[in-house]
């Protein structure tokens, strides 16, 4: 029987993979994809909690929809910014973006 714990473990694993991607990937587009993975892990959490703990309300599903919409806006801006920086450096590799330094 698959229960809440399984979903939460799945969500946490996906979240961890997402963080790994953000930290380890060099391609800016791949980093954006890893962030999407993290947001979708959160969505799994919300929907699973909604289903198993409070099935009478759809609050968690509602939150998941908001997250999806906001993530879409974020990716639109993100891709535009990658295009804009590509015009300057001719690269989408994060290691080439080094004009600003500590």
């Amino acid at each position: 029987m698959i229960g809440l714990n399984h979903y939460l473990i799945l969500g946490t694993c996906l979240f961890g993979i997402g963080i790994y991607g953000v930290l380890a990937k060099r391609n800016a587009v791949a980093v954006l994809m890893s962030i999407e993975l993290m947001l979708n892990a959160v969505n799994i959490n919300f929907v699973a909690v909604n289903r198993f703990i409070r099935p009478d309300e759809v609050l968690g599903q509602l939150f998941a929809i908001f997250v999806i919409v906001v993530a879409a806006a974020e990716v639109a801006v993100g891709l535009a910014l990658i295009l804009s920086i590509f015009r300057h450096t001719k690269s989408v590799n994060l290691h080439d973006f080094n004009l600003l330094k500590w």
Binding site: I19, V22, V77, I85, L99
Partner: peptide, 16 residues
């Protein structure tokens, strides 16, 4: 170029 870089850095870290 610095402004574009600032925007992209902010986006990645902000979304994270």
């Amino acid at each position: 170029g610095r402004s574009a870089e600032a925007g992209l850095k902010y986006l990645i870290l902000g979304a994270l």
